[in-house]
Design a protein around this nucleic acid. Sequence first.
DNA 1: TTCAATTGAAATAAAGTTGTCTCATGTCTC
DNA 2: GAGACATGAGACAACTTTATTTCAATTGAA
Lengths: 180, 180
Amino acid sequence: MTPDTALLNAAAVVLARNPGAPLADIAAEAGIGRATLHRRYATRTDLLRALALESLEQTEQVLAPLLTGDTRGADRLAAVADALVPLGARFHFLMSEIAIYDDPEVSGAYEAHLTRLGSLIESLKADDALAPDVPTAWGVIALDALVWGAWSAVEEGYLARRDAPVLVTRTLLTGLSPSP
Amino acid sequence: MTPDTALLNAAAVVLARNPGAPLADIAAEAGIGRATLHRRYATRTDLLRALALESLEQTEQVLAPLLTGDTRGADRLAAVADALVPLGARFHFLMSEIAIYDDPEVSGAYEAHLTRLGSLIESLKADDALAPDVPTAWGVIALDALVWGAWSAVEEGYLARRDAPVLVTRTLLTGLSPSP
DNA sequence: TTCAATTGAAATAAAGTTGTCTCATGTCTC
DNA sequence: GAGACATGAGACAACTTTATTTCAATTGAA
């Protein structure tokens, strides 16, 4: 029930570098002992499950105000990119650790996440920021892929941290906008 | 020395679903026994290494004619997307299995791959298909990310196989093109 | 200070994976 | 058909990781 954000952050970082890293590595990154890690999450599966759910919840909390707020169109997309790129480690985890979707709660939360992103894409279409004939699914996928790409490029030193969200927005926006 | 494309294909498919899958799963997917797998690749590391090198080589063979051919601009990018999306499983592997880059031959081939993609982006800029102020690194990253995203979307049933390369091209092209 | 709770370190058993080996079976050539 | 060859199945030891347990040290509150 405890959030344990610091511990889960450490897990996300380690697992982004090495999916399947031993629990010892995660404990070390978090600065705690292996035994203590087991006291908070009994099994490896429990830890991955918690990380998945917390990652999706973080995304939701970041996205919710942007979906109900009054910024629209390009500005809304820019705000979303700003908020999402720093969460790249969590995205990476969600995409590489497929076993977590065996859990019905996790897969339910993931479906909800996709639905939420779908609504965002639809709202951008309604604002004439995206072309109406672009499949919503592709909008979601492209956003996901570019956010993840931008994040890992920053991690590996190919891209400046501040440039990343701008490039994501520019690529998506001008890329999918209706021709003038 | 044998290509063993079928076996490596099976490995790529299994590892795309589950990075760190046991060799038994790979052998089963390839329809051979575990012992036979070991006869062809003595260790797991040998197999991953071969898969990485062969994946990069396949990409090179696919890209080479497109880089020297006479199609330019948007058509060239479309041809690249057509050729690359089906190789998505290999991309996924190259991006998730970080340990392979310990091998100097693999990391050298990967650098060459990035350089090749960089040349492609530059040639598209020269053709006025992409805006000159777009960082070449971002062009490479976005292409990589969108190809991978399109491939996995097809795999998971979110996208029609024939639509995928078109959407990649459209997203990148109209997305990064100079404003008219 | 004293007591209870939490922690890290270490030992341990259990489980899974890897790599080696043997052997029986099937295939191919001669 | 005989013999050479490759294969799959299975047994096996070595290794790694997981999960549990114990114990001494640390922390915090009464």
